[in-house]
């Protein structure tokens, strides 16, 4: 059990909340950290229809089986990561949200073949929005982010500035991206993004 007062996001030492501002008209990119999400790694064979049905009733929606897509309810967000691998992300920030989701999924799987692993604290989430958000990401990413190829609701695992990330386009309007980065790379990636976003006019917003 994590003590709340001991809990620190990987970017806490940068004092981002102290630098947060409202987005002004000339700002091309807005960035914020979205810390303390619950992340549960789920492995199950998609052709195991019993397990898939049990997980669907536990989550309230079907796991996405189309590559690079997501599915969501108000309390959970599922990422397709591979043919038999998903992430289930909970909004947090309660420290119990990840472990509770893991218990829910484990209970749904019972003794069927699969694996549920709580990996909440391994990553933090950075939200990037604004009219130049796509240009900013394209500076360090090999993915084709054109809306025709990477529409709203898409997710992809790739690398940004040589760092492994999971990218999610949550809304075409804006556009608004979220990327999940390993805790130990978070500071490096944030500072890289801040530098890369300077030419577009960067606003740091509160989380």
């Amino acid at each position: 059990m994590v003590e709340r007062y001991l809990r620190q996001s990987p970017l806490a030492h940068l004092g981002l909340d102290g630098r947060a501002q409202a987005v002004r008209g000339e700002s091309g990119v807005a960035m914020s950290e979205q810390p303390f999400r619950g992340i549960v790694n789920l492995r199950v064979q998609p052709d195991d229809s019993e397990a898939m049905a049990a997980l669907e009733s536990a989550l309230g929606f079907a796991l996405p089986v189309e590559p690079n897509t997501t599915a969501a309810s108000a309390t959970a967000l599922a990422f397709w990561l591979g043919p038999d691998e998903w992430w289930i992300v909970t909004p947090g920030p309660e420290p119990e949200s990840g472990p509770n989701m893991a218990v829910t999924l484990r209970t749904a799987l019972t003794d069927r073949r699969g694996a549920v692993t709580d990996v909440s604290d391994s990553r933090t989430c950075i939200r990037i929005s604004g009219p130049r958000a796509r240009d900013l990401l394209c500076k360090g990413m090999p993915l084709d982010l054109h809306p025709r190829v990477f529409p709203s609701g898409c997710c992809a695992q790739s690398h940004l500035a040589k760092t492994g990330v999971v990218l999610h386009l949550i809304a075409e309007d804006g556009p608004t991206f979220e990327l999940y980065v390993l805790r130990s790379f978070a500071e490096y990636l944030w500072l890289w993004l801040e530098d890369a976003a300077r030419e577009y006019g960067l606003t740091i917003t509160s989380s």
């Binding site: 590559p67 690079n68 591979g82 043919p83 090999p142 993915l143 992809a156 695992q157 790739s158 690398h159």
Partner: peptide, 17 residues
Amino acid sequence: MLLIPCPYCGERAESEF
């Protein structure tokens, strides 16, 4: 750079592989 069609994820840049 090669554009490699991953059988699971689709076409991606060689640097991901």
